[in-house]
Amino acid sequence: MNHPPPVAAQRTLLGDAARRFARNRLALVGLAMVTILLTMAVGADQIAPYAYDAADPARALQFPSGQHWMGTDEVGRDVYSRIVHGTRISLSVGLGVMVLALLIGVPLGLLAGLSGGPVDYAIMRLVEVFTAVPALMLALLLISVFGGGLANVILALGGVAWLDSCRLLRAQLLSLRERDFVLAARTVGASGARIALRHLLPNSIAPLIVAVTIGIPVAIFAEAGLSFLGLGINDPIPSWGKMVGNALSYMRVYWHLGVFPTLAIAVTMLGFTFLGDGLRDAFDTAMNR
């Protein structure tokens, strides 16, 4: 691996990471993709050529053309416009669920990994309770009882998605705790909290970032599963996952109904993956310098 020679100047971890990141071409591509997606989500009304709910049954199930770049769906709505608008919903679900997951998972994981003993035991039992119930089944039960809609879907999915980050963080901490640099910090008298924040958390970020980038499309698909069972987000509001789910009955002939939303999800995932890998590499090298 060809690390650039360390520059003698004083530098912060963040600045160093930013420089590393800027030199990584894939990471920049990822950043660009995510930026485009966020722009689409924000400016959907300006970008989409048609309204997402403008149906015209007389133009149903048209294949892609100059007029409708991605064709039309079963009631004649423009697929491209629905995908653009779907960015808003699907990113809300994906990001919302992951933010919720991190908000719950990181503090609990830190607590478990650092304190050990009965606290760790209690938190890990809590994790087991939640993991013990298959995520989709629990979300299904929750939404069956409390109702669907965007907010409830995010809450239900986020309520079970925090487990991965919690467990990952704890596992990382358990392994890192005994490493040389922590031992070194400890011998020079650094406090537990300081060690956690300055050394352990940054070192655990890499797997977390990967978990988040994978979690986003997983959340998008989980929403699709719920929509498929009538428990997700209602029509005509478009979400990619629901579009893929609905397309199942049409896909064998009207391939465009399945392919484009799947591509949208794939692009989102790739974007976040590149971005995540780039961030990981940047922080990682900066730290291990």
């Binding site: 896909m251 399945g258 999800i265 794939a266």
Partner: peptide, 8 residues
């Protein structure tokens, strides 16, 4: 593998 649902 992660984006194309297994039922598809």
């Amino acid at each position: 593998g992660l984006t194309v649902p297994n039922f598809v």
